[in-house]
Nucleic acid binder design. Sequence first.
DNA 1: TATATTTGAATAAGCACTTATATAATTAGT
DNA 2: ACTAATTATATAAGTGCTTATTCAAATATA
Lengths: 314, 314
Amino acid sequence: MDVIRSLGEISLGSRLKRVSDTLMKQTQELYTDQNIDFDPYLFPAFYNIVKREQTTNNELIDALKTSQPAVTQTIKKLELRGLIDLTPDPIDKRKKTISPTPTGTKLFQRLSPIWEILDRTVKEFTQLQSDSLLAHIDHFEQALRSGTLMQTVKERIQKELTIEIKTHEPSLSKAFYDLNIEWLETYFYVEDFDREVLSKPQQYILDPGGHIFYAIEGGITLGTVALKRIEDNLFELTKMAVSPEARGKGVGQKLMQHCIGFAKEENWKALLLYSNRILENAIHIYRKYGFEEIPVEPDSPYERSNIKMYLPLN
Amino acid sequence: MDVIRSLGEISLGSRLKRVSDTLMKQTQELYTDQNIDFDPYLFPAFYNIVKREQTTNNELIDALKTSQPAVTQTIKKLELRGLIDLTPDPIDKRKKTISPTPTGTKLFQRLSPIWEILDRTVKEFTQLQSDSLLAHIDHFEQALRSGTLMQTVKERIQKELTIEIKTHEPSLSKAFYDLNIEWLETYFYVEDFDREVLSKPQQYILDPGGHIFYAIEGGITLGTVALKRIEDNLFELTKMAVSPEARGKGVGQKLMQHCIGFAKEENWKALLLYSNRILENAIHIYRKYGFEEIPVEPDSPYERSNIKMYLPLN
DNA sequence: TATATTTGAATAAGCACTTATATAATTAGT
DNA sequence: ACTAATTATATAAGTGCTTATTCAAATATA
């Protein structure tokens, strides 16, 4: 028997604290589960700091409705974690200006989709047709203690936030075209031949024995890559494109990993690719995965390439 | 701007904790205000112990849904305050049996009506037509922070739990009769003459220059007392009766205090009273207020009296 | 201009919980 | 019957808040 529950509104204080503790603990477990080093107690302060871009201690006190030492202590923790920067105000030397570090902003971006799911799911689970606060608390605590709430959150994260690699199917042709055109428009220019190849992946990539892969998250295609057959066991990694919204999430690396794994399984001899030296980040990643620069042949098939890389397998 | 409020369900944990803290603090203030030495954090454990009459540590852990050390620590505090007794179990020497002390039971009785008001008022203030938990929390926090909730609680305590002394008016005649008859039936027996006097207070007490007072709490008459004129400045304290439900609340003492104060203001010489030695508690209180025993006259007007007491004023 | 007051932030200590661990007493297993 | 496992409670240390106090810089006041 849960006596606190039956005590009614007098024990509401203890009740609320108990529910808060449970929720915090489960949220902490969720972060750990997702391999994210974050503390739910830091959330309100952190969220505020990142959203405002630049804050002061006093603004936070006002926003969080907690005591000044609580804010000072929380900021200290955030600073220790390297998520925020504290710089003394040049005019008023007592003040400190609080702003997120690049690490902080990055973590924020990583956490945002999880928070969105958490928010949505909690909202769903806390909906109840009742005019009594206690009934709502009961209902919520039940959802928490039974574990169904966090179970649902995890399932949704799994479903919506896991990047999954799919092989080509006709319905993905449009994504293949769009992603690559966007990429070309950003870094180079689109030629008629590009449009021709990209609009007919079957004819230009698959039929000659190649493969196309897609990175899909929650039904949205974030990136694509193709493996074009050169010889029976030598393939060219090409047509890699990641949607602008998804950049920085490691989509390109996921596609790369998949291609290398696939190539190894097929017992191919090697992979090669053509790129351009201005794409420093991309080349850095190619090197990371073991590609090594080799001379570009004089009759290179690509005008915009000025570097050729090679990855021997096995 | 209250950013936590606008953060939505992700910050629900922080929100709940904040509301809990505020509620606990305000409840503590309420107790202090009422001159009651109690701690709202002890409530769930204390309530359980008193209600069950006898418990064990383990039962409490199960009931309160908190950790074992939390229970052990809370019990320790209750013991330090003298509200509970911890006796080792004679069979299993590891176990401790927890039971309320008389002081604990007394405090519980004193607190119960306050808890009833608190419960009722919180229930009222937390009623809201909304299916969202967050909206309920918002609504409740508003009521807490604005102070209206506790203001209402205090007003109700003042109105319902303050014992107030009123002078006679015809509508109170029935209470005068009922309270005294109940008292007589309990301790002695009711004679016809008693019924005659008690049913006609105007004729027997007031018209000859006497007074009747009532102790009233929340519209309920808890006790009564009469001052019967013997001489112009000598009055007899008589017809004191307290309803069985209200015994132990100090109603008799309140009436006594009022009578003495009244007598002093009227510049009377003295008060006297007749009682019976079997009513030890009553006589103890009379002595406490300064009454001293004097010989009973041979022609005492009361058959059931065997002690006469006298209180000189000024 | 010198002193008093206010303000922003830090520190200390306390409180109610937590987890981890220790210390008994009791029960189970062979 | 004797060791091993379990159970009941206590203690220690940590966490996130609190209030009270301290300290330094800025502002007000005379």
